[in-house]
Amino acid sequence: MFKKALLALPVAMAVGAAAQAGEWQDPNDVLQNLLQNNPDSKYLHQSEMNIMMMPDNPALWLVEEGEDLFYAQRGPNNVSLEGCDFGKGPGELDGAYVELPRYFEDTDKVMDFEQRLVHCMKELQGFTSDDAAVGQRHGNGSDIMKLTTYIAHQSSGMAWNPPLDHPQEQAMRDAGEKLFFRRGGAMDFNCASCHGDSGKQIRASVLPQMRDGQEWTKAVSWPAHRAGHDNVRSQNHRIRGCVWQMRHAGIKHDTPVNTALISFWNDAARGEPAILPDLKR
């Protein structure tokens, strides 16, 4: 019943095909391949129910809504987002999401996906931080999550491939790796405290291992419908949640610490196909 979202896709579906960089695949097919290739991963297999629900992933509704928003003329400047360059040229969305964060000449810095989207909504459409369109970052009702889900979906099945050619890209990725292992906060945690071993649990949640690319590609595949929240969530929302549990300090939106972490974690899934959108516990 959610399948109609897929009809809007510009790219033909490659059903069940092995992961090929550059080739769009239905997110459920990507997941099924991962499951088959990793029969022993507790993390990947932890929720039978979510695996069953995947073909009817509620996040697919947001794909449709996001598409309408993307092409609508909006904001004080009454233009669509077709002029937004996510790194592959204005309006070019195929494969753009899996090649972020990246360096943008117009801002002379490395930007992650959400930061770039907000940049375009402000610069092209004329929204300001006070407008709900960019101010509200979380929840199915937010423009940001609708747009994120639509745009990310255009990269489903493609391999994570954030560029590292520009020296700033390499620098941010390397700093992100340091941040991943940097012990700190009230309880001395780094990211590896919980994501350094396979098959370990925090309460009922089986945790993904960062150095296992096939676990990690699912781990970083956001947007995802989070069943426990009954909402589609972003990479930024996941970072916020982990940092909160870690008893570090709260990270602000669109900041370099956030971007560096994403630069590293997408790099850690390099070469593995993205599940976009995914469905998580």
């Binding site: 941040l179 300090a249 709260g250 990270i251 602000k252 900041t255 370099p256 610490v257 956030n258």
Partner: peptide
């Protein structure tokens, strides 16, 4: 990045 880029909430 941590200390000089205003990345954290002032709490």
């Amino acid at each position: 990045l941590i200390f000089e880029t205003d990345s954290f909430r002032d709490q």
